[in-house]
Computed example of a mutant assay.
Amino acid sequence: MFFPVSGLSLNPLIPVLIGFVLSFFCSMGGISGAFLLLPVQMSFLGFTTPSVSATNQLYNIVAIPSGVWRFYKEGRLITPLVRAVVIGTLPGVFIGAFVRITYMPDASMFKLFVGCVLLYIGIRMVRDLLGKKKSSVAPGQGTGRVEVLPSGYLEIRFLFQGQEYYVGAWGIMALSGVVGIIGGIYGIGGGAIIAPFFVSVFGLPVYTVAGAALMGTFITSVAGVIFYQGLALLYPEQAISPDWLLGILFGIGGFIGMYCGARTQKFVPERWIKWGLCLVIAWTAGHYILGYFFG
């Protein structure tokens, strides 16, 4: 099958399989898999134009709802946390999309940016892992529902397994604004960056933030795809709009994998999830950064 926007000729089952594998493992950490899907598209499929960022966000739109539904059904979707993430992230996504098209149309510079973002994500996750001797929640014990406590717009409070957690909404929104810019450039919606921050900086359990990170990524990805499609009208000389068919096929695989990953998460040790993601992140970041300077 030929995909005219990306210029790829692929068996349609290949993007479905790629989307399934990435989303299955990444969704267990509250990440859609888009942050790894983009390197796969660039390095293995040769899709490097700015439209790859929009295609990545289209994947999020199709793939994420199943995972969000699973977290909601299990009582692990914290609405005030989602609200703070979305309010902070949306403006940043628009800024990031404009920066990508205007200042990073070149594939080599964009790969360096991707490598630096991945390296930072990996360092944050490793620091968190080395700072804890064991997971805060044992495998099979992440089944408790989250009870959101009464709070205003400037604070988020909830109970999980008998322990109360508190975080200021302003801190979440400020972080989300920066994350939104990075995610808008990258094409990931921001969940891959903000989920590790929830755990390592704000001290929230990964079992409670995964749903909010995914939901925030879904909403900002919708906005990102619309914005990229609109910018395509202003920059007709560049390939900016998403490859709709390719993104939907990635998303179909991601939709199935996301649900399976969200259902499986509570049976997998938190540290295993994080270490697996760290290894993949480190390899990809090193490949792009070293490739830019020595390739």
Rank of each mutant, 00 (worst) to 15 (best):
R83V: 14
A107T: 12
R83S: 08
V93I: 15
F110R: 03
A97P: 08
M104R: 04
V126S: 02
G122M: 13
V86Q: 09
F110W: 10
R100Y: 02
F94N: 07
L118C: 04
I123S: 10
R127Y: 07
S108N: 12
A107I: 04
L118G: 06
Y120W: 14
I121V: 15
V117P: 02
A84W: 11
S108H: 11
F110D: 11
F110I: 06
I87N: 07
G88M: 12
F94M: 14
M109S: 07
A84D: 05
A97Y: 01
T89N: 03
I87M: 09
M125D: 02
R83C: 06
F113A: 09
V99M: 10
V85W: 10
G96E: 06
I121H: 09
T89C: 07
F94L: 15
K111E: 12
Y120A: 15
M104L: 15
V126G: 05
F94G: 03
F110T: 08
T102K: 14
T89S: 11
V99W: 09
G88W: 15
F98N: 09
Y103C: 04
L119G: 14
G96S: 08
K111A: 05
M125G: 03
L119I: 03
G115E: 10
Y103E: 04
R124F: 05
V93P: 07
L118M: 11
G92V: 11
K111D: 01
L112I: 14
R127Q: 13
I95K: 05
I95G: 02
V86L: 01
R83N: 11
T102S: 13
I121R: 01
G115I: 10
I95C: 06
L90K: 01
L119Y: 04
L90E: 03
L90T: 06
R83H: 12
D128T: 14
G115Y: 07
L118R: 12
M104E: 03
D128Y: 15
I101C: 04
R127W: 05
G92H: 09
R83D: 05
I123P: 02
L119Q: 00
M125H: 09
V117W: 01
D128A: 15
L118K: 00
